[in-house]
Computed example of a mutant assay.
Amino acid sequence: MAKDLMVSFRDEVLRKGFESTLPCNLNDKWLGLLAAQLEAYFERDVEEALSLPFAAVLHILCSKSGGEAITVSQDKLFDHLCDYRIELGLEEIRRKTDLGNEPASLQTIFTNRAVTFRGAED
């Protein structure tokens, strides 16, 4: 089952280019699944749940390096997984509410960017 899921993720997301793994470019299925897997890892310590989030984060890091090989420490990779979890949550908020926060781009993701929300009255 997990292998089939990774193959589907590769075919439906990863092969569409570097921007495909940005939360704003994920369809609802992948957004929800990645968020659920990170939730399983961070809240219940389910290590098997990290394969898709790792793939997504490494895909983004590869883009940020211009397609070159990347070297990242375990601590920094963990920080990026935490950041990605936050970005997935922000994207879910953006889709479900009138709080129009600016989605992360390849330039801004993993940069400790400031996030502002615009209300429905703005």
Rank of each mutant, 00 (worst) to 15 (best):
K96W: 12
N101H: 08
I86C: 11
H59R: 04
D79T: 11
E91V: 02
V115P: 00
T116Q: 15
Y41P: 08
R118D: 06
A69N: 08
A35I: 10
N101K: 04
T111L: 05
R118T: 03
A35V: 06
D75H: 10
N112F: 14
I70S: 03
C82H: 09
E91P: 01
A114H: 15
N101R: 10
V115R: 00
A104W: 08
K64I: 01
I93V: 15
L99Q: 07
G67E: 07
A49W: 03
A114E: 11
S65T: 02
I93S: 05
C62N: 11
C62G: 12
I60K: 04
H80E: 11
A114D: 09
A56M: 08
T111D: 03
C82K: 12
L50T: 05
N101D: 06
K64M: 03
L38M: 04
K64W: 00
E39I: 05
D83A: 10
T116N: 14
C62A: 11
Q74K: 13
V57G: 03
F110K: 01
A104R: 05
I60G: 07
D83F: 15
K96P: 07
F54Y: 09
D28F: 04
V57T: 06
Y84Q: 01
A35T: 12
F54W: 07
S73R: 11
K64S: 00
Y84H: 02
A114L: 15
A36H: 12
W30P: 00
R94I: 04
G100V: 10
L31E: 00
W30C: 00
H59T: 01
C62Q: 12
Q37T: 08
F110V: 04
D75Y: 10
R95V: 10
L88N: 06
H80G: 01
R94W: 04
N112Q: 12
L77E: 01
G119V: 13
S105P: 00
T97S: 09
E47P: 07
G32L: 13
D28Q: 10
S73N: 07
V115L: 00
C82I: 13
E102G: 02
R85S: 12
Q37S: 13
N101P: 03
S73A: 05
T97N: 06
A55W: 04
F54R: 08
T71C: 14
L50E: 04
Y41E: 07
E102Q: 13
L31G: 00
N112T: 02
E39S: 15
A49K: 02
A56G: 04
L81K: 03
K96V: 13
W30F: 06
D83N: 09
C82P: 03
I109M: 02
L77R: 01
D98Y: 07
R113I: 00
W30Q: 00
T116S: 15
L38V: 02
N112Y: 14
R95C: 10
F110A: 01
Q37I: 09
G119L: 15
S105E: 06
A40P: 08
R44S: 12
Q107M: 14
D75C: 07
G32T: 10
Q74H: 12
E43S: 15
L99N: 06
I86T: 10
C62D: 11
D45M: 12
Y84M: 03
S51W: 08
A56S: 09
S105D: 04
L88S: 05
F117A: 09
G100Y: 09
K29Y: 15
A35W: 10
A104D: 09
Q37L: 14
A40M: 12
